[in-house]
Design a binder for these strands. Structure first.
Length: 744
DNA sequence: TTCAGAAGGATTTTT
DNA sequence: TCCTTCTGAA
């Protein structure tokens, strides 16, 4: 074999090698950022296979994201060759799906169960609220969702919730939780948390299954152990009970998923849980310069809750950390844009722009577009979250699993086919007789001719569509999707609409067919395809092709970039106001540490003096993040935007564009259709216009526009009111121009 | 039943 | 500001 043991291990330093070649028994690898922890366990897997210490398919490795799993699979195959029966490398959730697809009946679920994401969850909760006669203002759906998730992560079943919770609204929440869970059960569906909990139940309640898998997996490796939560921890316990060969890798300073129930104690108590554990520390960093490490270390050392360690690197010195004070987010984006342009000139090729919340990406996108720099954005509204994609997938899900009420309600009248709210409600009422399965009640109602002619025909049509979809299920993936689009009239409805938006949707659907084609070529069947989509995070789409990557700090975990910009370092944003309120600064600080240690060579931190949070009102004046103060000044270079001066004085900011009011005439023209009004708006140069509502039935006689943006067009009485905003002028000074109109 | 227009709520972070 | 949901008219 080309990769002899010698060359394989030459890639590692001493402690890494000790870890990779560790034989039997529990092993805890405490590693710092950039110390090659993933690399170490990758080599360990290859080593176990090569040395014949464990059959490849009896190795289980759990990673944090699907992307990481994919990468690790590839690396292992490169080093150890691709064994006929490869090791199982996946996330906790996909491990759960894998086991549940085989044994779901034991838990009272069908094997075709649907996986609900947070959007489905929201829909279910809204239904539950309606049935219970609750209104959202009392308990926001978001809150209910997080309460339920928390309860599940604490392993509290619905019936115990009320007794255990100390929440003021516990009685109501308990009902919501119960009905929500019933609804999932009826729909033969699970949420993300269930995937872990049900697997756990499967292994513990069915001893023979637990034994089978516990026996099978001789070596288990877990990456990012600090981010495991309680149920995941128990799952590990169940699987390792027999062989006790668990290798966990983690860094307590990188625990950033507390909000999801990640329990830092899991790593702190490892040695107690697994007597005889060997502990190996990896403290040498191979990624960043000493300056970056010292800066990040100084920040995180303000945390009380840590064992403490000092990272070191052979790469001494390094450039100073640059801290930039911007006047506003636009200014901040300009700074980042200019720096990137300069770095590109110097030959740098990879950059990351990291922020705390997804909405911050906008300004940076604009600048990058202007500079014609390609970028990739991770998170936000992902491809698979789009309405049209979800709709089509819902058809397929329903065809596979007719119990799936969530999918059914989603598409029963999409595209509109004359099945209104009333009809749906009636159907739901009748579904009690079929354990809540709406599809069954629909079929029954058709048999009994229970609806009047029109509704009956509409329902009949819907039923035929689903039946037709079902007959396509066995066909190749791309063909299946095309035929579903055909059978459901989905594309046709979009084409009829003929708007720019619907054009886009059509393109997205074509893209879905392409994705399906690729999946088919990779020999992925329908079930796997759907599962992969359900479990996919947008971070999994990460691709190294574009020079600039924009993402949240959370998404950046495990990645590295030569140049990193952390933007929006302001009190209230990062650390987030919510974290300040809930006194959870330590996790935010770890997040800062994670972000800073992504940088190999250069690190830039920036903050804006002003930032407007959700639109209205004058922008807030922001203090720089406390984390910035925690970096020793001798490691930093501080820069201030020249624009800060102008804004820092008292009083309202002065407009930097001199005010003028050129006039433009639109005499006597009739705008009586949506399209003609749209045309009218289109005749205004694009840069002057950011938004416009379209009014029908108007004759615009006259309008005035300045060099500002058209914000709003509305009909008041017989007037068409056009609101224009000029740059640099506050909302109060917003100008309004009028166009008179008369009825057509 | 459907659509347009109006009102109201929302922003952490993810599998 | 933007997006979702609600409401009333056709």
């Amino acid at each position: 074999m080309a990769t002899s043991q010698g060359t394989l291990l030459d890639q590692l330093n001493e402690p890494q090698r000790v870890a990779a070649t560790h034989g039997r028994g529990p092993l805890l690898i405490l590693a710092g950022a950039g110390s090659g922890k993933t690399r170490t366990i990758t080599y360990r897997i290859a080593y176990l296979i090569e040395q014949g210490l464990c059959p490849a398919d009896r190795i289980l490795a759990v990673t944090f994201t699907n992307k990481a799993a994919e990468e690790m699979r590839k690396r292992v195959a490169e080093i150890a060759g691709a064994p006929r029966k490869p090791p199982l490398i996946c996330t906790f959730h996909s491990l759960g799906v894998r086991l549940l697809r085989r044994h779901a009946e034991l838990l009272g679920y069908g094997r075709d169960f649907t996986i609900c994401d947070s959007d489905d969850q929201r829909r279910i909760l809204k239904r539950v609220y309606k049935n219970l006669g609750l209104i959202e203002s009392e308990i926001p759906v978001r809150r209910a969702a997080s309460v339920i998730s928390r309860a599940k992560n604490d392993a509290w079943p619905p019936e115990e919730y009320e007794a255990r919770s100390r929440d003021r609204d516990a009685p109501v929440l308990a009902k919501i939780y119960r009905d929500y869970q019933d609804y999932l059960r009826i729909s033969n569906a699970t949420d993300f948390d269930d995937l872990i909990l049900l697997t756990l139940r499967l292994l513990s309640e069915h001893a023979e299954i637990g034994e089978r898998y516990g026996n099978w997996y001789q070596q288990i490796l877990i990456d990012e152990y600090q981010d495991t939560n309680r149920p995941q921890y128990e799952l590990i316990q169940a699987l390792t009970a027999f062989h006790q060969n668990l290798c966990a890798v983690g860094d307590e300073d990188q625990s950033i998923y507390g909000f999801r129930g990640a329990d830092i104690d899991n790593i702190l108590r490892f040695e107690q849980d697994f007597p005889g554990t060997s502990v190996i520390r990896l403290e040498q960093n191979y990624r960043s310069t000493q300056v970056i490490l010292d800066g990040a270390g100084a920040v995180v050392s303000n945390n009380v809750q840590r064992k403490g360690k000092t990272l070191w690197t052979a790469d001494k010195g390094g450039s100073q950390i640059e801290i930039f004070t911007a006047a506003d987010p636009r200014d901040e984006a300009e700074y980042v844009g200019q720096r990137i342009v300069r770095y590109l000139g110097e030959g740098h090729r990879h950059f990351a722009i990291l922020y705390r919340t997804n909405f911050q990406s906008r300004e940076f996108e604009e600048i990058l577009n202007r500079e014609q720099i390609r970028y990739r954005i991770i998170g936000g509204v992902g491809f698979y979250a789009r309405k049209e994609i979800r709709d089509v997938l819902a058809y397929i899900r329903l065809a596979r699993n007719t119990s799936d009420n969530v999918s059914l309600l989603r598409i029963i009248n999409t595209p509109t086919r004359g099945i209104g709210a009333k009809t749906v409600q009636t159907l739901q009422g009748w579904s009690e007789e079929s354990e809540g399965r709406i599809w069954d009640s629909l079929v029954r109602a058709l048999g009994d001719a229970a609806f009047p002619g029109r509704a009956h025909r509409a329902l009949q049509r819907f039923r035929e569509i689903i039946d037709r979809c079902r007959s396509y299920l066995e066909r190749p993936l791309p063909i299946l999707i095309e035929q579903v689009l055909e059978a459901t009239d989905y594309l046709e409805a979009l084409r009829r609409e003929g708007s720019e938006e619907s054009e886009n949707r059509i393109l997205n659907l074509q893209e879905l067919v392409n994705v399906a084609r690729e999946a088919e070529q990779a020999d992925i069947d329908l079930q796997e395809f759907l599962d992969q989509i359900s479990l996919r995070s947008d971070a999994d789409d990460y691709d190294e092709a574009a020079p600039v990557t924009l993402m949240t700090l959370h998404n950046a975990k495990g990645l590295e970039f030569p140049v990193v910009f952390i933007v929006g370092c302001e009190e209230g944003l990062f650390p987030h106001s919510r974290a300040i309120l809930e006194d959870d600064l330590e996790e935010e600080r770890r997040l800062c540490y994670v972000g800073m240690t992504r940088a190999e060579k250069r690190l830039h931190l920036s903050h804006s003096k002003r930032r407007r949070l959700y639109g209205s009102g004058p922008s807030e004046s922001n203090l720089p993040s406390q984390f910035l103060m925690e970096i020793p000044p001798d490691l930093t270079t501080e820069l201030t935007s020249p624009r800060v001066q102008r804004y820092s004085g008292p009083g309202f900011p002065q407009p930097h564009v001199p005010f003028q009011k050129p006039k433009r005439q639109f005499p006597g023209k009739t705008y009586d259709t949506k399209d003609s009004v749209r045309q009218f708006l289109d005749s205004i140069p694009a840069q002057e216009k950011s938004a416009g509502k379209i009014v029908r039935g108007a004759t615009v006689v006259h309008a005035e526009f300045g060099p500002g943006k058209v914000l709003h067009v509305e009909k008041t009485g017989k007037d068409l009111k056009v609101t224009v905003r000029f740059p640099g002028i506050g909302i109060k000074k917003m100008l309004q121009s009028y166009a008179k109109m008369r009825p057509v």
